Every structure is written in structure tokens, then in C-alpha cells.
Amino acid sequence: MRILVIEDDNILREATVAILTGEEYIVDQTATGDEGLYLAEQGIHDVIVLDIMLPGMSGLEILTTLRNNGCAIAILLLTAKDSVDDRVIGLEAGADDYLVKPFAMRELLARIKALIRRKGNLIIEDQLNYGNLSLHSRLKDGFVDGEPLGLTIKEYEILEFLLLNKEQIITRDQIFDRIWGVDSETSLSVVDIYIHHLRKKLAVFELESVIQTVRGVGFMLKES
């Protein structure tokens, strides 16, 4: 799971990132609205933790832009403004949840986990399911009818990303940015190499075709 934290309070942002990293989430962070929008538009995150008051674009401007562009990423708004009107404005702009500062980190974690559980109704406890294919986050492995695939960490992360976005086209760039990072100097061709390895492991169970190639674009997890 990958989370983007957009928060200009350095102490709060660093504390949030530390807590989320400790929960084994992959976390990207920024303190400015403009960079936050750029990162959010890459489509590689599962949840965005978004402060309303930011230098540059405000959190509400980012939220409105993302929703107007069809972005469906789960967004949790953070704000110091404790009023009904502010909550309503944020929710009507498309926020999935709302948390008022100061807040307990336990509540932040609970809200994020709830948002992840809502994503496609795929998650049952620590498990993702699609047909007879399942992923177990604690074991970092995939299973077909209970039989392990024996995935490497990178293979697991790619398959998780595809499963979270089942039956949707995911570009090579999105996979690369999510798994290796937007600043990685690794070649984009590494995505195809890992997809090949994944298909070989799925082929043992005659499921290699569940990862479909969308020529010139990327890949999609879809049952034949």
C-alpha cells in the first residue's frame, strides 16, 4: 500500500510518515500544494492524506482538481478549522473523510485503514482477493486456492497494485513510479521483466492470462 502525505507542518508530517512507515506502508511526502498535486496525479497511491492550508495550491484546490479529472483515490483531509461549514465544504468537494487537528495518531491510522477497506471491497483483514487468487499482506505472498506463489517483494507489490485496480488499465509508468519510485534511475523495461516473472509463477496454476497486456499502454488484471 502506498500513501501520499501532503502537509506543510514539518513536525506533524514527519511524525505521520514515521507512524505510517512503521505500519509497513510505503509513504511519499511533500510540504507544498503544487508538488502535492503533481505527485497525486501520478495515480500510484491508495490514500492521500491532505492538509487544507498549504503553500501554493490549497488542499481544497488539489481535491477539486483531482475529482474534476476523474481521480478516485481515497482522500483524507486534515485541517485545523473545527467547524461544520469547513467539514461540509471538504466533503462536498469530494473528500472521503475528514480529521480535525490536533488528532491522535491511532485515529489517523484507523481512518486510513477504513478508507483502504472501502476500496473496491477487496480487502478482508490482511487479505486481497480476486477469483481464486489472493494476496496476504503479512506474509507478502500470493496464493491460488491456498497454494503459495512464492513471490519476491517486488512481484508481490506489482500484483498488489494490479489487484487493487482490478479490471482497470495500469500504465507501465504508474507501475514503475509506485514500485521503484519517481526518482529511480532504473530502466522502465524492468516492469516487463517482473510481469514476465509473475506470469511464469501464475502459469503453474494456469492463471498467466489473468495479467493482460494492453498494447502500447500497460497491463490489466482481469479474468479471461
Rank of each mutant, 00 (worst) to 15 (best):
M53A: 13
L108Y: 14
K119A: 12
L66R: 13
D96I: 00
L159R: 04
I123V: 11
G36A: 01
T186P: 00
L91Y: 09
L159A: 10
L207M: 11
E61F: 01
Y156V: 07
K201E: 09
L115G: 02
Y38R: 07
R111M: 04
G218M: 05
W180T: 03
L188T: 05
V191Q: 01
K81V: 15
N165L: 06
A203C: 01
M57I: 12
A31L: 08
L128T: 01
E35S: 02
Q212Y: 04
S189Q: 11
I73Q: 08
L128N: 01
E41A: 09
D141K: 11
R178A: 10
C71L: 06
S189M: 02
D34L: 07
G36T: 00
G90Q: 06
G94M: 03
G120E: 03
D86E: 15
P148V: 07
L63K: 12
S58L: 03
G90I: 06
I124H: 14
S184M: 08
E107L: 15
E160M: 12
I52R: 01
Q212P: 03
E157P: 09
G131M: 09
L188V: 10
I116S: 01
M220P: 01
G94K: 02
R67D: 08
Y25E: 06
I123W: 08
G150P: 03
A110T: 12
G43R: 01
V100S: 10
V17W: 07
I175A: 04
I179G: 00
L149T: 05
V47M: 06
I193S: 07
I3R: 00
D173L: 05
I52F: 04
L78R: 07
F161Q: 11
L135E: 07
M53N: 07
R215N: 10
L4S: 04
K101Q: 11
L133K: 05
F103E: 07
R13M: 13
Q212V: 11
L151C: 07
K113L: 12
K154P: 03
Y156F: 15
A110R: 13
L99A: 05
Y25K: 08
D9A: 14
M220R: 12
H136W: 10
T32H: 03
N132V: 09
P148L: 10
K81N: 13
D183W: 13
E208F: 00
I11M: 14
